[in-house]
Design a protein around this nucleic acid. Structure first.
Lengths: 226, 226
DNA sequence: AAGAAGATTTTGGTATACCAAAACCTGTTG
DNA sequence: CAACAGGTTTTGGTATACCAAAATCTTCTT
């Protein structure tokens, strides 16, 4: 019973399962739960001081996001997808992001554009600070802002799901990017094209950006010798 | 207790929640559960002779698919999205399907192509039979076969999710399509381009096909005066 | 008669108990 | 000593009990 003893009142605004899912997600991304590890709902629930029911639901949420895999009648595992599978997901993510950029050029309000620019600026300032995680999260926020600017809720939601699924691997690549300055340049190019509402240029810039991502991931897998 | 009395043994191959979800999905698509209706987990669970736990999970599955919406501390509802939201989803579906076609041109095996052709043939034969539902399901199978031919599992899965979400509305439009023969022509065009592995032509054919879908949906909303 | 305050019911969220299948341990046997 | 059979433990799946928030109904007041 290492968990917090105070029993939260039911029907909270942000549900308990989501809170648990957030917790587990952080554990996975931070590496406390390594890929391939078992997630036993009894133990984890006890450790967090909650019952199995919300823990179950939290695990389902993460399974939906692709961070854990469910096996029939067996403990769920932290996902450990092979390179090909991740590459496939990156392809889809790229398509979603290009669609986002394209739609944003057509439908984004000035407010949307301003928000994207603001996040890009913030990314630039946090880029050289020590907090890698904060910088990375701002990076993700940049892409999320573009998806939001598409003014297509379904697209933004699906994009968010893919981003979550690739979160960990992107975090791993972000700390070993050979030329980290390229990221800044690429973001600048995307932002520039977006502000001009140049659909072709946006597509090209995103192609470049996520193309290097695929290459980075490949390198990561090679050095890890998975 | 109108449900079947035999208690199925746990750990079945196809889990109970999925089975319940299938049941509910059919009820929604067939119109037994109309959009906007409440889904009370207690009542529905009792009606199907299962407990609330698997019913809950089934409802989450459908929520994930977008067929039902969850409200905090309230009964889930059968989704009843406004036109704009559905239009947004169709835009994403179109993008996914164009990506599928594009990748299929590059990576599909001959077997994949044969399967697509087989489904297209089957659709043509069932098209004029009385069973609208069977014909419609074959139509959906055609699009699923293309997604499978992309050889991208993530893409196929996301595509499947969107297809499920739009299942009902597409079923409704399929029975009021003004010129039903166009569908056959459009499918033929898609198949033709696909077999030639002509990426541009596939994209164009899919644009046409799903363009008419959007128009059909718009008409449906106008006549329904939602 | 209309509105508000309080009691009751309904309902989803959570905790817990029980079951069977899978995994694990152990003692026996060839 | 290896391999297998049996029982024990572990674990996820399901059912059920309980709780509090929301909704609904009741009744009292104006």
């Amino acid at each position: 019973m290492a968990g917090n003893p105070e029993r939260p009142s039911p029907m909270a605004e942000h549900s308990l399962p989501e809170h648990i899912a957030d917790e587990l997600r952080r554990d996975i991304l931070r590496g406390k739960l390594v890929p391939g590890a078992q997630i036993k709902e009894r133990d984890n629930a006890a450790e967090m001081g909650v019952s199995r029911t919300p823990m179950r639901e939290a695990i389902r949420i993460l399974a939906q996001e692709g961070l854990v895999v469910l096996r029939p009648a067996r403990s769920p595992l932290v996902a450990d997808p092979p390179f090909d599978e991740i590459a496939d997901q990156v392809v889809v993510l790229l398509a979603l992001e290009k669609l986002s950029g394209d739609l944003a050029c057509q439908h984004a309000t000035q407010d949307d554009m301003d928000r994207v620019r603001a996040v890009a600026d913030r990314f630039e300032t946090t880029f050289y600070t020590a907090d890698r995680l904060a910088s990375f999260e701002t990076d993700m926020e940049f892409h999320t802002a573009i998806a939001a600017a598409s003014r297509n809720r379904a697209l933004a939601e699906t994009h968010r799901a893919y981003l979550a699924r690739l979160w960990r691997i992107r975090y791993l690549t972000s700390r070993r990017r050979r030329n980290r300055a390229t990221v800044l340049d690429q973001h600048a190019a995307i932002l520039d094209a977006l502000l001009k509402r140049d659909r072709v240029a946006v597509g090209a810039a995103l192609d470049t950006h996520l193309g290097t991502l695929t290459e980075d991931i490949r390198q990561l897998f090679i050095t890890e010798e998975t």
